[in-house]
C-alpha cells in the first residue's frame, strides 16, 4: 500500500491514530450515525419554552431589546399601510424592494397606490427592502431568513432599512423549533439546506472603535418587524 500523502489522508490519519486508542470503532460509528440521523436536543433554556401567546410577547420584548422595532397589525391587508406609514414617518422614499415570496406577493399592495413596489433581489441603491421570515425565534427575538427562489440574502444586508413581515403564527419559542420547521419545509420541497440561512437579531451594529456601540455598520441601520395577526388564535401562518 502506498504511503498516505494527500493532505486529507495525513490529517484524517493523524486524527484516527489519536482517537482510535480511546474508542470502540463500531460503537463510535453507530453513535455518529444516530446523532446525525435524529439530532438529539441538548439542554434548552426554559425562557423560550412557553405557550404561544407568551412566545409572541417574548419575541417582541427580545427584539425590542436589540433595537429592532415591532409593529403588530391585525391582518395582511394592513401591511401596505404599515409599510407606507413607516416610510413616511422616517422620511424615506415610498419605494420598496420586496422579496418575491408567495405570501408577500399575496399582500394587496395596491391598497396604498403611492407605494412603489418592486419584487426581486436587492440592488445596491435600494434604500428599503421588505422580506418575509420563515420564523421568529422568541428566545432572542431573532428572525430566520433563508435564501432561495423567494428570498435573496442581500435583501437583508444591502438596504439601510430592512422591513420584515412576520406572521405571529410563525413565532416559535427556541432555535430547535425553527430548525424543525426548516427541515420540514425543505423536505417537503425535496431540497437540502438552503444556501444561506440567517438568524437576524436586531439591526447591524459595531463596537470596533473605542468600544462605542453604533448601529448601521454594513448591514441595515433599522430593522422593523411588522407582526401580522393576533397571537392567540385565528392567525394563519404565512409559511407552513
Amino acid at each position: 500500500m502506498p504511503a498516505p500523502d494527500t493532505p486529507r489522508d495525513t490529517i484524517l490519519g493523524t486524527i484516527r491514530r489519536a482517537v482510535a486508542t480511546v474508542r470502540d470503532e463500531t460503537a463510535a460509528r453507530a453513535a455518529v450515525e444516530q446523532r446525525l440521523a435524529a439530532p438529539p436536543r441538548n439542554l434548552i433554556p426554559a425562557r423560550g419554552q412557553v405557550p404561544p401567546p407568551q412566545q409572541v410577547e417574548l419575541f417582541q420584548r427580545m427584539a425590542t431589546l436589540v433595537a429592532a422595532t415591532v409593529e403588530p397589525v391585525a391582518e395582511p391587508g394592513r401591511v401596505p399601510h404599515a409599510v407606507a406609514d413607516y416610510l413616511s414617518a422616517h422620511n424615506l422614499p415610498a419605494r420598496v424592494r420586496v422579496a418575491p415570496d408567495a405570501a408577500l406577493q399575496a399582500i394587496p399592495w395596491d391598497r396604498r397606490p403611492t407605494l412603489e413596489v418592486g419584487f426581486g433581489p436587492a440592488r445596491a441603491d435600494d434604500p428599503v427592502c421588505v422580506t418575509a421570515a420563515l420564523a421568529g425565534v422568541a428566545e432572542t427575538g431573532s428572525l430566520l431568513l433563508a435564501s432561495g427562489a423567494d428570498h435573496a440574502a442581500p435583501l437583508a444586508f444591502l438596504p439601510h432599512t430592512h422591513l420584515v413581515v412576520l406572521s405571529a403564527a410563525d413565532i416559535v419559542g427556541v432555535y430547535e423549533e425553527a430548525w424543525d420547521r426548516l427541515r420540514r419545509r425543505q423536505a417537503d420541497r425535496g431540497l437540502g439546506m438552503p444556501r444561506a440561512v440567517t438568524l437576524v437579531t436586531g439591526p447591524s451594529r459595531t463596537a470596533d472603535i473605542e468600544q462605542t456601540s453604533l448601529l448601521h455598520a454594513h448591514g441595515p441601520g433599522r430593522l422593523h418587524i411588522i407582526l401580522v395577526g393576533p397571537p392567540a388564535h385565528g392567525a394563519e401562518p404565512l409559511h407552513g
Binding site: M62, L65, V66, P100, G120, P121, E139, T140, G141, S142, S147, G148, A149, D150, H151, A152, A153, P154, L191, G192, M193, P194, R195, A196, V197, T198, L199, V200, T201, G202, P203, S204, R205, A207, G219
Partner: peptide
C-alpha cells in the same frame, strides 16, 4: 464574548447558489 444574547447575524452557508436561487 460581548454579553449579547446572540450576535446580530448568524449565517449558515451551504454550497453555492442553487439553480432556482435569486442570488449567491
Amino acid at each position: 464574548a460581548t454579553g449579547q444574547e446572540l450576535s446580530t447575524y448568524t449565517t449558515f452557508s451551504t454550497g453555492p447558489r442553487r439553480p432556482d436561487d435569486l442570488d449567491g
